[in-house]
């Protein structure tokens, strides 16, 4: 399992548009990918869960990747987070 911690820098937080992009990005991988803020852990492949975190600028989120392509997913999503959130 790989784990990625990321502090949101986008002033609007994970709002609808980036949540959609994130879901689209993680769906390319077969690994189970979860996104967690505080105690709440959500399926990163479902847009309602991702938006439901209500992650704002300055919040730390933790993504976990588990499965055959977890390394590739980790690399791609790290890059995605830095560029978009």
């Amino acid at each position: 399992m790989r784990e990625l911690k990321y502090v949101i820098t986008d002033p609007e937080g994970i709002h609808a548009r980036p949540a959609g992009l994130l879901v689209k990005a993680v769906k390319d991988f077969s690994s189970e990918i979860k996104i967690k803020k505080g105690e709440k852990a959500m399926n990163c492949k479902a847009i309602f869960g991702v938006m439901g975190l209500g992650a704002k600028k300055g919040d730390e989120v933790t993504l976990t990747f588990e499965g055959a392509d977890e390394d590739a997913a980790y690399d791609a999503i790290s890059k995605f987070m830095q560029e978009n959130l």
Binding site: A16, G20, N43, A46, F48
Partner: peptide
């Protein structure tokens, strides 16, 4: 227009 793309994803939401 992006909102309609988001709506499509909402319809595809696994939890929903």
């Amino acid at each position: 227009a992006a909102i309609f793309e988001v709506h499509q994803m909402m319809l595809d939401d696994d939890d929903y």
